[in-house]
């Protein structure tokens, strides 16, 4: 475990906690896409199937449980908690996210390292994570309104992805056999989506305008 990886994980955890805090204390999920949250729940559920079969460390198992628990809690809050559900932007959050799920599943069946059940689902979770933020970005563009907490949530998520890339560069130079093309390319695509968003976020902030 290097410092980039740890910082990335912590940033990731804070991003989820910020979102849960917003939903739990303000009882509002305005500006948050439930589609993106459902995609993350699927990502974690399919990636962490190995939680029962391979033990890495207490840290790893603990963090996996945190991400599984938090992503499913957020979806539950947004779909079934009455007060929170009332604040959900249903008319604007119309991204057809099941197409993403289907495309990523097909891609995972075609491009993977090993054709086993766990490996294909693990690869599927990488593909899906890369594009899971799309419904959230589309929702932000539609409502053209971004509150501080939602902005911080996306900012922390972007930071987490950036730190993971530094972690891979570090591991590539310090560990033998650390070559993982699928992980790297999907990670890069995901980070570029955030970078693109922040570019426009920064421009609109600089011009003191709403997001365009």
């Amino acid at each position: 475990m290097n410092i980039f990886r740890l910082a990335g994980d912590m940033t990731h955890m804070f991003s989820v906690l910020v979102l849960l805090l917003k939903i739990h204390t303000i009882k509002s999920c305005a500006g948050v896409s439930v589609k993106t949250q459902e995609l993350y729940a699927i990502v974690f559920a399919t990636r962490y199937l190995d939680i029962f079969t391979s033990f890495v460390s207490i840290y790893n198992t603990f963090m996996k449980l945190v991400f599984l628990g938090s992503s499913f809690s957020i979806v539950w809050y947004m779909r079934y908690h009455k007060a929170v559900h009332r604040t959900y932007d249903r008319e604007q959050d119309t991204f057809r996210h099941w197409f993403l799920v289907l495309s990523c599943l097909l891609l995972a069946l075609l491009i993977h390292e090993k054709f086993t059940f766990l490996e294909v689902l693990w690869t599927f979770s990488l593909y899906l994570e890369a594009v899971a933020i799309l419904p959230q970005l589309v929702l932000l563009q539609r409502t053209r309104n971004i509150d501080n907490l939602t902005g911080q949530y996306i900012f922390l998520l972007g930071g987490y992805r950036g730190l993971y890339i530094l972690n891979w560069i570090y591991r590539y130079f310090t560990e033998p056999h650390f070559v993982h093309w699928i992980t790297w390319i999907t990670g890069l695509v995901q980070t570029l989506l955030y970078a693109d968003f922040f570019y426009y976020y920064f421009l609109s902030w600089k011009n003191n305008k709403k997001l365009n």
């Binding site: 990886r5 391979s54 790893n60």
Partner: peptide
């Protein structure tokens, strides 16, 4: 997981 295995990540 062995050295260089990306599956020890989250």
């Amino acid at each position: 997981p062995k050295d260089g295995d990306v599956k020890d990540e989250l």
